[in-house]
Design a protein around this nucleic acid. Structure first.
Length: 904
RNA sequence: GCCGGUGUGGCGGAAUUGGUAGACGCAGCAGACUCAAAAUCUGCCAUGGGCAACCAUGUGUCGGUUCGACUCCGACCACCGGCACCA
């Protein structure tokens, strides 16, 4: 055995052996339980970043652990290869997106391989290949037939200078990122998927996903946004007979407090009012130019303008003014809301700003418990209780929008509580044919059309005679031409007649092919099914998917908690309903890993520009206690400013290149560091010292095995495979009677570490504590100096178990050390070891004694001592007596095996 | 703004079901080995007081429940993630 830990040699040896044995290629095998472990596939941006390394290391640790536990494990990998960055790179470098993407894939694949992940590369997919995206197209046509896909107009950001549609991220402060031109809203025809049809199912099924983090389920439930309320209409007449302005409200109990209505800028009523009102038309234009992003809408100033039109209150018959409000969304409900300034904070602000009437119709008593003496429905048998809380129109109060008050100033509804009032009002509206109770969803249908080149073509042909005609299945895939280079002025497909010129499949006449491509979320909504049915040129999905699905463990960033995961759930259900797969939920268990952070160092230039520096180029000065004093740039020795820890990004210059780290420290050290530094769901702070520490651990592990193996000499304790297996499960361990105390202690430390590591890797899925347990064991082992044959046998057992416990985390070194310890089988195929119960037995345990909840002493009692015995021992303890000191005992609490609390 | 999350020594974190707060590591300090350095090994390392035994305080802030709270409840503060064309 070599004395030095040579990571490069070890890792190439291990990877070479795995490759030559095709160790990670898996086939369906009904004799073994299957385990599908999937990490979110990467966008091929050029190089792996540390977030990828963390994500895939977590997946690899779980995969390798489950394999040792006897599962048939599938861990595939692919490329989410369509998308905007390739077009941006193309513009910058004048290289076709296809070429850029395929080069990136080749490089990143080699990076992944150097990290030693147990991936079945035979199943690799790239979503930009026709072999993959033809099934996007094929299934889109099935959804079209089933009515799940449909066409309607949608609003996009239009850059008038570049004559192109911009993504939200390409719009900065309302202007195009490249041209600086004011971005306009344009309505264009687009294709949508009816995800709203699945809203109830998607919501209900969240309860059947106990393996998902609670917070992700909550976020999805909020996103779907089911709300029960009343949809009703305000009648109006503009001369052409009665028409209806529909609104939706969850607060029908406040309907008697309506003093205005507000409609979205795109609402037909607004358009109508603007025809003879230039000021209103200008305001509507301003609203339309505004942002479409919810976050910006929420914080912007609420503005409105009266339309001069009035509608009739359906219950009071009063005339209600209609306003246009910039905060009303055309995409939610009917694009109009009723305004109740007294009981809605936003309406209150709006009314104050524009001098609209504020009419209180809900009252609350001082303690919020019961009604006060208003109205006919008052129950006079009930105690009057506190006086009502004063309502003031001067300032908004928290209780104004409470649902626990009662109606006042509301005629026949006076005295009714929330639910009773909603029921009564809904019934009255229904009697008039003007409304009824309804369920409203926040979730909107999924618009999948993108006016971009680097995506999957939507397989439709527009024929002047026949309309929109689907491309026949036999003609799929509609191939994306790969040589085009976008220049920022719109979709190059629109300038490529060889792509868009075609014949109508129905009438044979000249027609134009659709040039929009699909949202890249489409690609990632079913890739997990394709891995399971890899390389099938005849079908999108086959019986192999029924074997592998659902994904047993899905791992990815929390930033995908809503969109990607919801779209994938929807898509899987659609495939299920069209008879293509058996499962309805794609991901049984979900682990959302935290982000990778690093220090940010900057320096402000004289011109106000901020320069960022890599933490690798910065020296940090500390005081005697290690406290950070200042930071200086290594190259010029001048100070730089520390901005704290943030997520790694190119623009902040705080990224770390995995490739350099692998070369310098080896994949095992990087993997160990990432698993040890933080629990998987927390954010992880990068530190070069931490990697150094991981590398130190690897050297120590190597040296411990080396010293043991080389110490074998020719004595009776010589290492051999037969001796090694003798201490394993096949034979019982040495009997406690024959062992010294120190030997007994090391065996107990070894086997209790195994219990802990098994639980952490398996049930808990927390790896930092598993590694800490092994470190503790190694500390015990290095204090163990017994070189007798029996002592050596116990060290051998301990080292073998350490290597096995670490195998999922540092697989290369574990692979080689396993052989050095005398085995010739492959460690990754070895069954996970089981702890020897005999090694865990203890004769006595330590019990903590508290007096009035404060730690005052410790006692040692025999294992299995009764509560009374423990209690007596605690009260007899000298330290404890000092604190009791004759005071009367009030209570003694005995927690078996843990502590005694004496209350005096 | 709305929704979700996080907050423990100088730092990352541990404490799994309400039961010893600070495991394990990083940084730091002291020492051993060495001509020296690297590597390695040993010891110390929450704060205040004390020679020490030990005592008091301490898990973002304030309050509550409990024999006992990092853990449960209420209010607040700070920071982070998502918000539908980035993926």
């Amino acid at each position: 055995m070599q004395e030095r830990y040579d990571h490069a040699a070890i890792e190439s040896q291990a990877q070479g052996e795995w490759r030559s044995q095709r160790a990670f290629a898996v086939a369906e095998d009904t004799r073994r339980p299957k385990y599908y472990c999937l990490s979110m596939f990467p966008y091929p941006s050029g190089r792996l970043h540390m977030g990828h390394v963390r994500n895939y290391t977590i997946g690899d640790v779980i995969s390798r652990f489950m394999r040792m536990r006897g599962y048939n494990v599938l861990q595939p990998m692919g490329w989410d290869a369509f998308g905007l960055p390739a077009e941006n790179a193309a513009m910058k470098n004048h290289v076709p997106p296809a070429q850029w993407t395929y080069e990136n894939i080749a490089y990143m694949k080699q990076q992944l391989q150097s990290l030693g992940f147990a991936i079945d590369w035979d199943r690799e997919v790239a979503t930009c290949t026709p072999e993959y995206y033809r099934w996007n197209q094929w299934f889109f046509l099935r959804m079209l037939e089933a009515g799940i896909a449909y066409k309607k107009t949608g609003v996009v950001n239009w850059d008038p200078v570049d004559q192109t549609v911009l993504a939200n991220e390409q719009v900065i402060d309302g202007r195009g990122w490249r041209t600086g031109a004011l971005v306009e809203k344009r309505e264009i025809p687009m294709y949508y998927l009816r995800i709203t049809q699945y809203a109830q199912e998607l919501l209900d099924a969240l309860n059947e996903l106990p393996g998902w983090p609670e917070r992700v389920r909550t976020m999805q439930a909020n996103w779907i946004g089911r709300s029960e309320g009343v949809r009703f209409a305000f009648p109006y007449d503009l001369g052409g007979g009665q028409q209806l302005l529909y609104v939706f409200t969850t607060r029908a109990d406040t309907i008697m407090g309506v003093t205005f209505c507000a409609v979205a800028a795109e609402h037909p009523l607004a358009t109508h009012a603007a025809t003879n009102n230039p000021a209103l038309a200008a305001f509507i234009d301003e609203c339309k130019r505004g942002t479409a992003m919810e976050a910006e809408l929420a914080v912007m100033e609420k503005k409105g303008m009266a339309t001069g039109l009035f509608v009739t209150h359906p219950l009071t018959g009063m005339q209600v003014p209609v306003w246009v409000g910039n905060y009303v969304l055309m995409t939610y409900g009917d694009g109009a809301v009723m305004g109740v300034p007294a009981h809605d904070e936003r309406d209150f602000e709006f009314a104050k700003k524009y001098g609209l009437e504020i009419r209180q119709v809900i009252d609350m008593t001082g303690d919020g418990r019961r009604a006060t003496g208003y109205g006919q429905n008052q129950d006079l048998t009930v105690d009057r209780g506190p006086l009502p809380v004063a309502f003031s129109t001067a300032e908004w109060q928290d209780w104004y929008d409470t649902k626990s008050g009662v109606c006042i100033h509301s005629g026949k509804y006076d005295g009714l509580t929330y639910q009773a009032a909603v029921d009564a009002i809904a019934a009255d509206l229904q009697a008039q044919g003007l409304g009824n109770k309804q369920v409203q969803w926040r979730l909107r249908d999924w618009g999948i059309s993108r006016q971009r080149y680097w995506g999957c073509p939507i397989p439709l042909i527009h024929c002047p005679a026949c309309g929109d005609v689907p491309v026949p299945d036999a003609d799929l895939p509609v191939k994306l031409p790969e040589g085009l280079v976008p220049d920022g002025s719109g979709n190059p497909l629109n300038k490529t007649p060889s792509f868009y010129e075609c014949r109508c499949p129905q009438c044979g006449g000249l027609a134009r092919r659709e040039t929009d491509t699909m949202d890249t979320f489409v690609d990632s909504s079913w890739y997990f099914l394709r891995f399971a049915s890899a390389n099938n040129a005849q079908a999108m999905s086959d019986a192999r998917a029924d074997y592998w699905m659902p994904v047993d463990q899905y791992i990815g960033g929390i930033e995908h908690a809503i969109l990607h995961l919801l779209y994938s759930r929807f898509w899987t259900r659609a495939m299920h309903d069209l008879g293509l797969v058996k499962v309805t939920e794609p991901f049984a268990n979900l682990l959302t890993q935290g982000m990778v952070l690093n220090d940010i160092y900057s320096r402000k230039g004289e011109d106000g520009r901020v320069d960022y520096f890599s933490p690798a180029d910065v020296d940090v000065q500390t005081d005697a206690k290690g406290l950070r004093l200042s930071s200086t740039l290594r190259s010029d020795g001048l100070p730089v400013e520390w901005e704290g820890m943030r997520t790694m990004s190119k623009s902040k210059g705080n990224g770390v290149d995995p490739q350099q780290l692998v070369e310098r420290y080896g994949a095992d050290s990087i993997r160990l560091f990432m698993m040890f530094k933080a629990p998987p769901e927390d954010s992880l702070e990068w530190s070069d010292d931490g990697v150094e520490g991981a590398a130190r651990f690897m050297r120590r592990l190597w040296r411990m095995v080396f010293e043991h193996v080389s110490g074998a000499g020719d004595g009776p304790g010589a290492v051999a495979g037969s001796e090694a297996s003798a201490t394993q499960a096949q034979a019982p361990g040495p009997t406690p009677q024959s062992l010294t105390d120190a030997q007994c202690e090391l065996r107990r430390a070894t086997h209790s570490a195994l219990v802990k590591v098994t639980d952490d890797l398996g049930r808990r899925r927390i790896f930092n504590t598993a590694i800490a347990a092994v470190m503790e064991l190694m500390n015990s082992l290095s204090r163990f100096t017994d070189t007798s044959p029996q002592g050596r046998a116990i060290v051998q057992e301990s080292l073998e178990l350490i290597v096995q416990m670490l195998a999922p985390i540092v697989p290369h070194a574990a692979h080689v050390l396993w052989k050095e310890l005398g085995h010739d089988d492959l460690l990754l195929n070895r069954a996970w070891p089981q702890a020897d119960p005999a090694a865990l037995v203890q004769d006595s345990i330590d019990i903590v004694v508290q007096v009035n909840g404060k730690l005052r002493g410790r006692i040692t009692v025999p294992t299995g001592a009764g509560d009374t015995q423990v209690r007596e021992a605690a009260l007899a303890d000298e330290q404890v007596r000092k604190w009791i000191d004759g005071k009367p005992l009030r209570k003694v609490i005995v927690v078996p095996g843990k502590l005694v609390n004496v209350v005096v």
